[in-house]
């Protein structure tokens, strides 16, 4: 009970956001690397990777549940922080601006709630399109060189990203993800009490690099499919 109330405190809420955020960053990076196997000269690489993941069995499902929890908690706490923000200042300023450095109140920081909500919406669509999209029952089947018959996710992906809406919508969302991570990664570490005066500027820059890398990493596959 003590732990629950501690988690609901202003510090606890940040710790929750930070921990779940870091979990999500790890997922996003893994996902991105997985996606890049699509570009491998070995045409079965992507489906093999997907199949191996599923074959992890209970480990896979545990990770899935943890990720789902991360998503849900991250979203709930994020939205509740936004609601508190309105309560904490019911009458806004007629004129307000950032004082500039060392403030990190840039576009990415200010838009966390918007990029966050869009990412949440995207996640739902993304799950519908892919995870719960057409499977072996609908004929998306392929035989791996090792002999197993598995779901042909590569085909599904190829088809989806040939549609302009997916090919261009997806990269835009990924740019928003990069922005979210640009403030989020540093912020999560700060929320977990890991930052210091000297470390902060460095990590904040590294977070930007990471944000860009992830966004770019995710851009490759859809643009490759659409244009080639």
């Amino acid at each position: 009970m003590k732990l629950m109330s501690a988690l609901m405190s202003p510090v606890g809420r940040k710790v929750l956001t930070g921990v779940t955020g870091i979990g999500l960053v790890a997922f996003v990076i893994a996902h991105m690397i997985g996606n890049l196997t699509y570009l491998s000269p070995n045409e079965h690489a992507y489906n093999t990777y997907a199949y191996k993941l599923i074959s992890l069995g209970w480990i896979f499902y545990t990770i899935e549940i943890l990720l789902a929890l991360c998503f849900i908690l991250h979203a709930i706490v994020g939205i509740s922080i936004q609601i508190r923000r309105r309560k904490a200042r019911p009458d806004g300023y007629k004129k307000y601006k950032s004082a500039g450095s060392p403030s990190y109140q840039g576009y990415s920081a200010r838009s966390m709630i918007f990029t966050g909500i869009i990412l949440l919406g995207f996640l739902v669509l993304h799950l519908i399109s892919f995870k719960y999209g057409p499977g072996q029952a609908e004929g998306y089947t392929v035989t791996l060189p090792s002999g197993e018959e598995v779901r042909d996710l590569r085909r599904l992906m190829t088809e989806k990203f040939q549609e302009p809406l997916y090919a261009f919508g997806y990269p835009i969302i990924m740019l928003l993800l990069g922005m979210h991570m640009r403030h989020g990664v540093w912020s999560a570490l700060q929320s977990l009490g890991m930052m210091s005066r000297r470390l902060s500027p460095l990590v904040y820059s590294l977070a930007a690099v990471l944000g860009i890398l992830v966004a770019v990493g995710f851009l490759f596959v859809p643009l490759y499919i659409y244009f080639w």
């Binding site: 510090v11 004082a99 403030s103 990190y104």
Partner: peptide, 28 residues
């Protein structure tokens, strides 16, 4: 009834004494 901290660091930028948000990390 104060709001949550979103690590904007705007506080440090306006602080007349330049107090660092490292303190917030330390508090956590």
């Amino acid at each position: 009834g104060f709001g949550d901290c979103s690590n904007y660091a705007e506080c440090e930028a306006v602080c007349p004494k330049g107090i660092s948000i490292e303190g917030i990390a330390r508090m956590r």
